[in-house]
Design a protein around this nucleic acid. Structure first.
Lengths: 228, 228, 228, 228
DNA sequence: CATGAATGAGCCTTCATTCAT
DNA sequence: GATGAATGAAGGCTCATTCAT
């Protein structure tokens, strides 16, 4: 086509798509994945349902895209927050604590993350890649002793998700992140004292742009579809 | 008529209710909690929707009842399967492995259990009571060293659920249960060698009546609600 | 049949039927005629739906019976409350004011009366018979001058019903009954001064057993189906 | 496409909404407010239930809109039909007779009006505003003598509604409107002779577009909601 | 591309009524 | 005659999806 203004470089289509994804994240946060509707996502994005379907074939596709974006954004930011840390054990602890910390900063957002995770394998896949790398690093450094990578990942992921949930629901004691990270490190084979010490080191600063959940009117999420 | 055997008495209502719960379990297994509909539950139970509402005020109420039944049945059977084991650590390992074993025996059923757990706090509450007891027992026996019960429960529950999911989805290596239980015990403070040894002890036999998931026609569950 | 105990003279069947009618009145009051359900009527009467259908062929039949009972009870009690009054004008005023007074004493009950009236011609028929008699008496006594009985009855009935509604809804000024009766008498041809005087005479006492509306739990009538 | 005439613009949405309201009026007429269903309204409008809910949040909202439209249409047309009449008494009589006349012209429509009035305060409110104005005008002109506006309005409204009902049901003698108006005027304090004379004056012509009730198949209104 | 009105399948829930006991 | 579990026909409402403009 000709009419396409060259001045619109950053892709108008892309911008629209991004806005829709942002809106979807907001609505997923507010209503839960199951409770979200295409019409509300469109409305929040100040668009119409037709437009949503111009970008995504189906509601499921919106979910996939949200998962993808979430995974990318999250992983990058988290991974970039501790490039200088070379120790697998500490990297692992930081990862765990970071997610739990996020749940503290933005419970709604964390619940959404868990919800989206449960609904699509994509998100989890992306996130766990990093955890797996740290796990292997720790093993290579002889900090971790695991005979089954799968078992280790289940513990890491399971404990982390569970802790996020507890924190997001306001039922966690102070320093829950440190406590959980300590147990996980011990499980991975780090001697108790060292585990406690490593897990307690200060968290590196976190790049800006905290995840936003914004306001979506009323009639809160129907059933906290989170995992237990 | 008069000739009706007195054996019929013990509650037709109760029998119907039970049939409905069984049907609900089947449908939850086949479609997931969110994808299940009252009409299909009624149909599977060979009844009408009206009858369902004669027994349960709401779809949510059906879910609650299923959770209750599940919790009661499960906990009793599992707890009774190792009354003679006095060591907290071993009890804990048995519990973990038992659930993972169940996921192996009946993947559909396990997915349903996870799904129902996610949707209602009731079920989890019931199940975790037993795990908590074993945790405290282990602490009293100096096998476990934990500073935060909450963190410990998150690890125990999280790792277990995650492992069940992996097993149910057929992505687990052999002896996954033992591997996970080992890590969990280590996380709870049991020395590595002992942890491995305890987790490897043979599972006590399990009372009959394996959970049934039966067949429900087609159009598989909508949102696999997977997690791994 | 033989088994019918002679000691049960007052008719057990009749008693049951009466209880059902009483229950129906309560439920109609609480939920409105349209909002009432057979199951709640049965429940309030401490019976089962089956029993209701042993006495009434249909919900409509229950309504008819309620209307009949209401008409009989009401008319008798009202008519008997002023047998000594011989003047048509005063009898008319008393009738009007009595209904309005009832609406004051028991708004719920009045709304039900209006609602039942609207739903079945039976009730109104019974009630208006008395008003018509008083109208004719007044005409014969030269107090009233009307060329159309129908028009007169419309004014009498319409004004009365409207006033009951206003009173029942708590939107009437004090002495609304007297004011309305005065206007009606004037409309019927009574000179203003006399109309005011007659309408203001003290109401004769009213036989006991005020209409009961009792308590029926919550979830009040859906839409005050009353007439405007 | 481009060739679309600009004449289409003035709101497809509005047109649809209007069609729905028209359909609702038809269905309300045929089945009564309580007996009307959203599906039949949709069907009569040649649309689907979903479309109805695209325009009205709830069945109640449809009723409100119908009431609003009815009130606006009616009041304007009636008020405009006698702008030149300056006498309160005559205006009052015209109003009364006009409604009764409408019931004669279109009984179904009148019954619907009464039914809608009963179900929502909106309609009545709008209609009575005009009657109240005429009442006050008559009082200022010393034609009426009333001590309670509320009582007067109850008589006016009540007698009018009752008369409409009787006429709509075909049970009224000829000239019922005049007869009722006469009585009402007398009730408001107009001397009998004058009342009769004023009420008998010819009705001014009425602007076109008589209310249509059309045909809606069978299975007549469930509860005739009659009143006398 | 965007629009947004329209669709229609389907869900949850209610309730008058039946009937075996 | 009483019981009450079961029925099943509707009804209100939601929402993913389509399509003409």
């Amino acid at each position: 086509m000709v009419g396409e203004g060259a001045g619109e470089r950053p892709g108008k289509r892309e911008r629209t798509r991004l806005q829709l994804v942002q809106a979807a994240i907001q609505v997923f946060s507010a209503r839960g994945v199951a409770g979200a509707t295409i019409q509300e996502i469109a409305e929040v994005a100040s668009m119409t349902t037709g437009t949503v379907y111009n970008h995504f074939a189906t509601k499921e596709a919106v979910l996939q895209e949200v998962a993808l974006v979430l995974a990318r954004t999250l992983c990058e930011r988290i991974a970039q927050s501790y490039p200088q840390v070379k120790e697998g054990a500490e990297r692992m602890a930081i990862g765990q604590r970071r997610y739990i910390w996020l749940a503290e900063q933005s419970p709604q957002w964390a619940l959404m993350l868990l919800d989206v995770s449960a609904a699509t394998p994509l998100l989890l896949q992306g996130v766990l890649k990093y955890a797996l790398a740290d796990l292997r690093l720790g093993v290579k450094q002889k900090s971790f002793k695991v005979t089954s990578e799968e078992a280790a990942m289940d513990m890491i992921n399971g404990a982390g998700a569970q802790a996020m949930l507890r924190v997001a629901m306001g039922q966690a004691p102070p320093d829950h992140g440190v406590a959980v990270a300590t147990l996980v490190l011990r499980g991975l084979g780090v001697p108790p004292d060292e585990a406690a010490a490593v897990a307690r080191r200060p968290l590196p600063p976190f790049p800006e742009e905290a995840p936003s959940a914004e306001a979506v009117p009323a009639s809160g999420r129907k059933a906290a579809r989170a995992r237990g």
